[in-house]
Design a protein around this nucleic acid. Structure first.
Lengths: 243, 243
DNA sequence: CGCGCTCTTGACTAGGGTCAAGTGCAGTGG
DNA sequence: CCACTGCACTTGACCCTAGTCAAGAGCGCG
């Protein structure tokens, strides 16, 4: 896989100019690249002494399982995203992370994390910023599941993914490749795979968007934004305060 | 209102012994207590230059509103909880915070926050820990709305609140006072107030729990834990790693 | 060649939403 | 003192969105 421009620094620089020393510290934070093949768990729920990672290449997702076997996907991660940072301080991980495709990850060096807080506070701010953005996405997801119907929810989710992909330089304004299967997408949206299939058909037949053969194509972004109330600025304009 | 034992230090000490200098730094972090009356907004979605607060006394909740007017409550806050810390670094707040009862809040002094990271890293760790726990609760809430039916979801939510109340020394093992109205509870659970009412009746008639006149009483915690798969340890055993 | 997985569609069901009506307060103003 | 309003809660009747069950097609793989 081509490493392209590093996705993480690309994402962070959407919020703040990274100085050379920031970039250097960021690079030192990440351990060597490790390959994990599709379907393998990187961190599992309840794991003790779990680490956190940066996803360098490929897709992953985090989920929790209920005692009746049902699965809810919390979030999907694309290159440049963190895996498990939020649960780093919990004694056990509160969620599982799985490779959706073959991926490359770098383990985060926790000691370096503290060094960043002392040595390059600008970068620390950027990292906290990214963590806040991830939190905001989980919140938005919660709202979506709680109060949007299946069609709106699906459209919103795919729009958001599109914006995220564009931010890291993959995909265009109205198309991106998306390796999610329908059953995974359904578990992310709190739907059954069967109903999701019907929803995708509706979206297709209404000429709003097409999701076929691993590619999402928006046919009418205006209408989609109108239906979902999607705010195209919410992921890339939340820059840190001026200080 | 009696200040009782400070709820925040009580919550944090469930995870880590607070040394006197930690307690001092914690106190300096918080500005003077301010009264806000029930129904008033403390932070609103989209607010610029928003601050973060510690809730000293009373209840609050955070929510987002959709463009069709629907409201989804993200989380409710009880004494010792933070308001708006996660969105501190976002240019605009991604959610609103409202006083549910008359409350006392203290504004967080952001400069002191950085001092804590340098001067009392133990305390910084405890604060990050609390933020992680809050994130874990949002995730659990997401899972609940996505994959649990109305009855289980309601029971789980009320159980969790009970544990949180007990952790800060309010309420007993099987009862606590809870100022949530049915319509607010419904908006938290992604239900309509009408259906929530039916669910509460079911819970009452099944002798599982009673929520009446602002008091939640568990009649059968065993059965409730069984039905919901509730893990009574998840909020208070996630201590930071031993280091 | 058969197994498993993803996707698709149809028929039926049920959980939860919608609409409507009514009760019981706590204010508030005449 | 009583009307009037508003809000929280309650209940019933009905409906619709999304889940369940069932079946089949297409495809990669051992």
């Amino acid at each position: 896989m081509p490493s392209q421009v590093d996705a993480l620094s690309r994402k962070l620089s959407a919020f703040m100019q990274l100085k050379p020393e920031d970039a250097a510290a960021l690079e030192k934070l990440q351990g060597p690249r490790t390959l994990v093949s599709a379907g393998k768990e990187i961190v599992y729920e309840g794991q003790h002494r779990h680490a956190a990672y940066v996803l360098r290449e490929g897709w992953a997702y985090s989920y929790k399982r209920l005692h009746d076997g049902a699965r809810q996907i919390i979030d999907v991660q694309i290159p440049g995203d963190f895996l498990g940072v939020r649960s780093l301080l919990l004694r056990t991980s509160d969620q599982s992370f799985v490779a959706l495709t073959d991926i490359e990850v770098s383990r985060i060096n926790t000691e370096r994390l503290w060094e960043i807080f002392h040595g390059t506070p600008r970068l620390a701010l950027a990292l906290l910023w990214a963590a806040s953005r991830d939190g905001a996405m989980v919140v938005e997801h919660l709202v979506s599941i709680g109060r949007r119907d299946a069609l709106t929810r699906t459209a919103h989710f795919l729009l958001e993914l599109g914006v995220r992909m564009k931010l890291i330089g993959r995909g265009t304004a109205d198309s991106y490749s998306c390796p999610l299967s329908q059953s995974i997408l359904a578990d992310a949206l709190g739907l059954t795979a069967i109903h999701l299939n019907r929803v995708l058909r509706q979206l297709r037949e209404a000429n709003l968007l097409v999701f076929r053969e691993g590619v999402v194509t928006f046919l009418d972004r205006e209408a989609l934004a109108e239906i979902t109330g999607f705010d195209f600025t919410y992921l890339d304009q939340n820059m840190p305060a001026s200080k």
